[in-house]
């Protein structure tokens, strides 16, 4: 009973926060531009020499984050290989 009251209160709190956040969302399909977007759209083709602006952000402007992503995948593969290795022989 106490857990059910706690769940109800938490649902009300999270739902209220979500509803109050949804009031400030801009209309669907109308992205509001930021200075960062405008800079990338204007200058990415000249600075990174790639037509695909998303790829030039991922691999050029934010290349160090992509290195971290690769490291995360490498760690996942190592942990799967350690978990599912053949025991005993081999």
């Amino acid at each position: 009973m106490k857990a059910r009251i706690f769940f109800l209160i938490s649902i009300l709190v999270v739902g209220g926060l979500l509803w109050s956040g949804l009031q400030a969302v801009h209309p669907f399909g109308l992205p509001n531009g930021t200075p960062m977007d405008d800079y990338f759209i204007a200058n990415a083709q000249g600075e990174a020499a790639a037509n695909n602006v998303v790829t030039s952000i991922v691999f050029d402007y934010r290349g160090f984050d992509t290195l971290g992503e690769g490291a995360v995948l490498f760690t996942a593969v190592i942990s799967v290989a350690a978990l599912f290795r053949k025991r005993g022989h081999n």
Binding site: A48, A50, T55, L73, V80
Partner: peptide, 26 residues
């Protein structure tokens, strides 16, 4: 065109193919 970006695409592609195939095979 695009200098290093194509090279990065190729290297990340090789890495992801190897890693996900390793997960599935294990």
């Amino acid at each position: 065109t695009s200098g290093t970006i194509a090279l990065m695409n190729l290297s990340v592609g090789i890495e992801v193919v190897g890693g996900l195939s390793m997960i599935l095979l294990y």
